[in-house]
Nucleic acid binder design. Structure first.
Lengths: 201, 201
DNA sequence: ATATTTGTTAACCATATGGTTAAACTTGTT
DNA sequence: AACAAGTTTAACCATATGGTTAACAAATAT
């Protein structure tokens, strides 16, 4: 038996699917059990309560996202290169985990205190290096003046929003599933260009 | 008695609060009734079911948002002026309705078919004029070449994301409630400049 | 082999939840 | 005043839900 087929892992896996698509409030313990092919009592045996099972799933999801952010924050390439790399990588990553952004954003909105628990974790993204680098490049005349926090949020916004707002954007731009995928795919370069055009001298 | 104090309106008002902060799944009919100061049976008397009450709230919320979008889509000023006006107005609007974006985005993700009902409504935003105008200004040499859909999504993303991702962004940028409000306030001009810099020749 | 710990199940429980009902109250009409 | 229509309430209902229990099975240790 593979590690992934232990009851504990089967449960976490099923819980991930259900929680990420339906949220904490919409998820049902029975549905998770059914999806895992396992008796409902086992969920409590391994994770004690719905809340704790949810937290296990959430921390797992966030620990998938954090390294993506750290890419842009903590390597040594130029801001331009970072933006290009991040935009490509992040979009590719999101295409593989389409429920992730909405799940995280929404659950953080539902319970604002929850982010405090994440902050304590090592590996919680830290902006200091990125901000210092932006300011250095501005002084060096490579970039136009811009507040580093604002730039960071812009980068995040342009990359994440198409996944968060997919149903809305799809409807507004009158795209079907296929053309939306192509639209997002082309953003890998479009968004990077859009940002670079704006900030580069 | 004012119109706003009829039972029907008190219910809708309370339902708006509860649904927008807790979502469809997290909302409880009893809680809505309590907030409205009205017997629970009245909710069903006026709105038949939780689903229908929810839809009333949702359509209401969306009909508040749609005119904001139409501002940028259907007036006759230049793209640059539209971007500036939209960014200022939209941010001001969101500061007054902080739960709106997450509510709408999240519920549309929960039920993708729901947007179809909205599409039928008159007043559902239409991008054609905006797209034509972008292409005209590109041909006239006012704007650099850019796909109009991409530009539209960029504008939306930059404006909406700070409200959607507030808890996350607040934590990442280490801002408290007050400095986050200032951050968002300054985006009214920062975002417009960011966009204009990128697209203007 | 036997005892002990760990894993698993079906049945059960208390409570929460959306929804209904029938009676009472209010308002307007004749 | 009497009647009808609309409005409001408390009590009720069926079901769903997170969680528990006690018995049973499998693996592990003695």
């Amino acid at each position: 038996m593979k590690k992934e087929e232990t009851a504990e892992h089967l449960i976490l896996d099923a819980a991930k699917d259900i929680f990420q698509s339906k949220g904490m409030d919409g998820a049902r313990m029975q549905e998770i059990a059914d999806k895992a092919g396992i008796n409902k009592a086992m969920l409590h045996y391994y994770y004690r309560s719905k809340q704790l099972l949810f937290e296990a799933v959430f921390k797992n999801a966030f620990s998938l996202l954090a390294p993506q952010l750290n890419t842009i924050l903590n390597d040594d390439s130029s801001i331009e290169d970072k933006v290009r790399k991040f935009t490509t990588d992040y979009t590719a990553f999101m295409m593989k985990h389409p429920y992730l952004p909405n799940f995280i954003i929404n659950e953080l909105n539902r319970n604002e205190d929850f982010i405090l628990k994440l902050k304590e974790n090592t590996g919680f993204p830290n902006l200091e290096k990125f901000k210092a680098q932006v300011n250095t490049e501005i002084k060096a005349g490579v970039l136009k003046p811009i507040d580093a926090d604002q730039l960071f949020v812009n980068i995040l916004a342009l990359n994440i929003f198409p996944f968060l707002g997919k149903p809305l954007v799809k409807a507004l731009t009158k795209k079907d599933e296929l053309s939306y995928a192509a639209f997002v795919e082309s953003r890998k370069t479009e968004v990077a260009n859009f940002i670079i055009h704006s900030i580069k001298k």
